[in-house]
């Protein structure tokens, strides 16, 4: 059972990777298969790792562009 859930407003993402670097579960990455509206590789959850989120919101705390919404269960 996942303890948390993250959602990315991916068209706002600038692909800076700050969220990726601070996630304690190492469950985020830049999606190099995608280019968003702004022209960046947006951050997303590594496939299959959705349930590893603990809802700590550290990713969102470091996001300069308010891309991330975090829920905790």
């Amino acid at each position: 059972m996942a303890k948390g859930r993250v959602a990315f407003d991916r068209d706002l993402c600038k692909g800076c990777g700050l969220c990726v670097s601070v996630c304690p579960e190492h469950m985020l990455e830049l999606d190099t298969a995608t280019i968003n509206r702004k022209g960046y590789h947006p951050a997303h959850v590594v496939e299959g790792r959705e349930d590893d989120c603990i809802g700590c919101a550290l990713c969102a705390v470091m996001c300069p562009d308010q891309v991330i919404t975090v829920e905790k269960f």
Partner: peptide
């Protein structure tokens, strides 16, 4: 289930012109 982090009403919905990863956005 509770939303523990979301966009603040203290900022507009405008997308900032700051470079990727610039911490002006955090402040």
């Amino acid at each position: 289930m509770a939303v523990v982090f979301q966009r603040t009403a203290g900022l507009t919905d405008a997308e900032t012109h700051y470079c990727p990863g610039c911490t002006h956005g955090i402040v």
